[in-house]
């Protein structure tokens, strides 16, 4: 299992917060779409290569971390990586909405990703990680008792 400094994903989330807030501040505009495309690319990078191999993780390792005390605890790299995948899904959907001429939908989707990034950066809370179990609960086939429940 890959162990990482939990402050790495928090740093990434802080930068993501600033980028997505700027996107919304400028939306709807071509600048907003360009910046969102860049952030979506970063999400994809984190999800595909792992959160410890992104450009932001490199900045954290070389610039931020040497100035911090050693971490009190190590964290598994899988949860934040999964969350990057969720971020990518929202970013990509928002991009499609902006390009398709539905900027309000695009902004709302970015808003969800922003809220998740804020929760991670400020409160250390991983929304994408928690939603995972709820999704699993509802997507796995129901048991017999529910299948035969009366319909009226």
């Amino acid at each position: 299992m890959n162990q990482i400094d939990p402050r790495g994903p928090k740093f990434t989330a802080a930068v993501t917060t600033v980028v997505l807030a700027t996107v919304l501040f400028l939306a709807p505009s071509a600048y907003a779409v360009g910046l969102l495309a860049l952030q979506t690319l970063l999400f994809a990078w984190g999800a595909l290569r792992g959160v410890q191999h992104t450009p932001l993780a490199w900045v954290f390792r070389t610039v931020v971390r040497p100035r911090l005390a050693p971490p009190a605890d190590w964290e598994d790299a899988a949860p934040p990586r999964f969350a990057q995948g969720v971020g990518f899904a929202f970013g990509a959907a928002a991009l499609v909405a902006f390009v398709a001429g539905v900027p309000l939908l695009g902004s709302v989707l970015v808003g969800f990703a922003l809220a998740a990034a804020v929760l991670n950066a400020v409160f250390g809370f991983c929304l994408g990680c928690e939603v995972y179990l709820l999704i699993r609960r509802f997507t796995k086939p129901a048991d017999a008792a529910q299948v035969h429940a009366p319909t009226s």
Partner: peptide, 24 residues
């Protein structure tokens, strides 16, 4: 305020409220 800026404010307020509630 543009629609994006409105969403920005709402998203930040909701995140803060949810985060404080969860911390509690």
């Amino acid at each position: 305020m543009s629609s994006g800026q409105t969403v920005l404010v709402v998203a930040l307020l909701l995140a803060a409220a949810f985060g404080i509630y969860r911390g509690f």
